[in-house]
Design a protein around this nucleic acid. Structure first.
Length: 493
RNA sequence: GGCGGCAUAGCCAAGUGGUAAGGCAAGGGUCUGCAAAACCCUCAUACCCCGGUUCGAAUCCGGGUGCUGCCUCCA
């Protein structure tokens, strides 16, 4: 496949370190607040990459960390009077729930900073031994000017950065650009012993230590949000390669785009966040995931609620199509139609080629929609029910899995939940139309009773009454569809 | 101030030199008791503006305008 590499600044062929194997590391979250839609986007993008690579036959090792020790966690834990690690553990739990709702597969390894201290200390030791870092009054610092390639990833020179003048003034540093590898503990702060004094790791060194620990030097893909390019990833390269004696740290760098809220980047520090939890109250996780996959992963995504409405309609079409194929699978078949087979194989190759092209999800989705239309057209023109369309179901489901949109049943469950929410309204409607139902019947029972009442009306030619009942249900957001084999309902809004 | 990115129909969005994918919405039709769903048809002489290169540009170059990212914690 081809991917856009940030360091080389172009789209290149992905050539793994070891044939058939991909080792990837993605910077995870700092768990001190609920995850927002921007975190979700990054997680979904790399989950897609992993799923695609796996479907393309690679054995993928996916590592993503938790920065469970940092200034904000310490601060917030202090405010709440609890231990920092208790706070981060709580938010990691919430994060895992959110990701599960979005059908993000758990990474193979999820190291935490607090459990990686020995690796971090070891790495800092090697950097000092190679004369790329020094011990100062309040910590250990990396000497940026001793690393000649510094600035290559973010495309700026050391002198440019210097004139930026936004670098913090700190007497302990030999150069304003130097950054902390190890921060000596302030009284009362969580800390660990080290050869240089008690303290805790700086942010950047953690990811170098954890990725090298689990994947080794020269691993294939390092990803993250594009806001991490500078300084985080720039620093990671510098530290790691300073310790690796000339070996390459990472083969390919990938960065996913930001989610913008009202024109600017959504971020905790700006306070303009839409959390995954808030969204999940309104939309099934699969709809949120589809929303995120509609845009190329590298481009900024303008958050808009109307976009979720559109994604909802699109996902419903997918779920309905799958249900349609499943029903077909149960009918009797005369054999295999070559037209169906060629449609299936055409879809598969177009879909796979789209994702192989730097994860072009827009194109992959287009091929999916076209496939649905083609199969439906054959069904309405030649009566597909007589033929074996199992290859269509197989092809459709397999690529839905790659997109992580295969949880159509989760989506149906969400809609069932919506039906349950209408219990009270259904009771009123049932009473109004005179449908006989148990006093303590479920929402589904109530709906069934109303539908039975309407069926009776239709069978006796009382179409006015039937339409009235349908209209009443529509008024509470339930749409009825009369099909040849019975009545279906769908929840609107 | 420095270094980047983006600008395609009502909305979302692909396409980076060969004459505008796809989705949502909308309108018309088939089907239906009527609807809905499904299917068919329609829906950008046109890709922010002005120049230029080219047989040919949404795509390349120059100049504008607008929005935006990084330079500080950030996915």
């Amino acid at each position: 496949m081809r991917i856009h590499d940030t360091l080389m600044r172009r789209t290149v062929d992905l050539v793994p370190r070891e044939p058939g194997k991909i080792a990837m590391y993605v910077c995870g979250v700092t768990p001190y607040a609920p995850a927002h839609i921007g975190h979700a986007r990054t997680a979904v993008v790399y989950d897609l990459l992993r799923r695609y690579l796996r479907s393309a036959g690679y054995t993928v090792t996916y590592v993503s960390n938790y920065t469970d020790i940092d200034d904000k966690i310490i601060q917030r834990a202090q405010d709440q009077g609890i231990a920092p690690l208790d706070l981060s553990t709580r938010y990691i739990g919430e994060y895992l729930e959110d990701m599960a709702a979005l059908n993000v597969l758990p990474p193979d390894v999820t190291p935490r900073v607090s459990e990686s201290i020995p690796d971090i200390i070891d790495l800092i030791g090697r950097i000092i031994a190679n004369d790329h870092a020094y011990v100062s009054s309040d910590g250990v610092y990396f000497a940026v000017r001793k690393f000649s390639r510094y600035g290559r990833l973010s495309g700026r020179s050391v002198d440019e950065m210097r004139s930026g003048a936004r670098v913090e003034v700190n007497e302990a540093k030999e150069d304003p650009l130097d950054f902390a590898l190890w921060k000596f503990a302030k009284p009362g702060e969580i800390s660990w012993d080290s050869p240089w004094g008690r303290g805790r790791p700086g942010w950047h060194i953690e990811c170098s230590a954890m990725s090298l620990r689990h994947l080794g030097a020269g691993f294939d893909i390092h990803g993250g949000g594009e806001d991490l390019i500078f300084p985080h990833h720039e620093n990671e390269i510098a530290q790691s390669e300073a310790a690796l004696d000339g070996q390459q740290f990472v083969r390919y760098w990938m960065h996913s785009g930001m989610v913008n809220m009202g024109g600017e980047k959504m971020s905790k520090s700006l306070g303009n966040v839409m959390t995954v939890r808030e969204l999940l109250e309104q939309y099934p996780g699969q709809v949120i995931r589809l929303y995120l996959l509609q845009t190329s992963y590298e481009k900024p995504l303008k958050f808009s609620l109307s976009g979720f409405g559109q994604a909802f309609a699109s996902y419903e079409r997918m779920a309905e199509f799958e249900a349609f194929l499943q029903e077909l699978g149960q009918s009797s078949h005369d054999g295999v139609d070559p037209e169906i087979e060629s449609t299936c194989s055409g879809f598969l190759s177009e879909f796979d080629a789209s994702l192989a092209d730097n994860l072009n999800t827009s194109r992959a989705l287009a091929s999916l929609y076209e496939f649905m239309t083609r199969i439906r057209r054959m069904a309405s023109e030649h009566g597909l029910a007589k033929l074996d369309a199992s290859c269509a179901l197989e092809a459709f489901r397999s690529r839905l899995w790659v997109l992580g949109l295969d949880q159509t049943s989760e989506y149906v469950r969400h809609k069932t939940g919506l039906l349950a929410d209408k219990q009270h309204e259904l009771e009123e409607a049932a009473a109004e139309v005179g449908a006989a139902a148990d006093d303590h019947g479920s929402a589904r029972d109530l709906l069934d009773a109303i539908v039975a009442k309407r069926r009776a009306a239709r069978e006796t030619g009382q179409f006015d009454l039937a339409d009235q009942i349908r209209e009443r249900l529509r008024s509470i957001g339930i749409a009825l569809e009369d099909g040849v084999d019975g009545v279906r309902y769908r929840i609107r809004g």
